[in-house]
Amino acid sequence: IVTDRAQNPTGACLGAERAAELRRVLAAHPGVLLVEDDHGHGIVTRPLRPLAGATDRWALVRSVAKAYGPDLRIAAFTGDPETVDRVLGRQRLGPGWVSRLLQQAVVHLWTTGAVDPETVADAYGERRDALVRALALRGVEAHGRSGMNVWVPVADETGAVARLLSAGWAVAPGARFRIASGPAVRLTVSPLAPDDIASLADAVAAAAGPAPARTYG
């Protein structure tokens, strides 16, 4: 399973060189099922570098939840004939039905230009890049190449979350996203206004280090 761009939580994005390397690796294992999750469609300006076709079995899924609203609960997908047929078969075992009204709403959004994906992507990108720059100026390492999230390594994950909450900022602890990497927190830039950037960066810089020593009398 590969998220080609706007990876959650780090914002990682496949470049042309990395995509070519992965295609070579996958081509040596044609029996692997490749699933590509392009949930970032409509909210990122970086081009999609798909890996589809490098293996015999593949699917590319493009949801609309991030770009147009989570209540839509709709995704389009394509793939090789056997994989598509298997997905359709699994749907028949469950409800097997997606609201026609919601489908028509998505088609309307796609075909009428009701939402400008470039404007949306630029808005997220400006906030994300501004936050990464502000953190760098404060000596804080941060990652956020695409999408709406910024990943910040911290010394003490639980302490950082608590200190930021005390300062008025709610962030996601990194434990739910990581396997072998160190402690970190995820910041989501979608609700930020330009005036929020500096104060959030100050709060993160204060929270990212070790917890202050305590003494008890």
Rank of each mutant, 00 (worst) to 15 (best):
L48A: 13
D37C: 02
R46M: 08
A28H: 12
V61I: 13
V61M: 06
H39W: 06
V25W: 12
P30M: 00
R73F: 03
W58H: 04
P95H: 08
P50G: 06
L34H: 08
S63C: 03
L72Q: 01
E36K: 08
T45C: 15
T45S: 15
S99H: 06
G31I: 10
H39M: 07
L88I: 00
A75I: 11
D37F: 00
G42C: 13
G79T: 03
D85G: 13
V98D: 08
L48D: 11
T83L: 12
L48V: 14
E82C: 02
G31V: 05
D80T: 08
A75H: 05
E82Y: 05
L33D: 04
L26H: 15
P95F: 07
G96K: 03
G53Y: 07
V32F: 13
V35W: 06
L48Y: 13
G53D: 11
V44R: 05
H41D: 14
K66E: 09
P30Q: 01
L51K: 12
G42H: 07
V64F: 01
T55R: 03
P70H: 02
L33E: 08
P95Y: 06
E36N: 09
G40V: 09
L93P: 03
L51Q: 10
R49K: 04
H29M: 05
P70C: 01
R73P: 02
T83G: 10
L33S: 04
D38L: 09
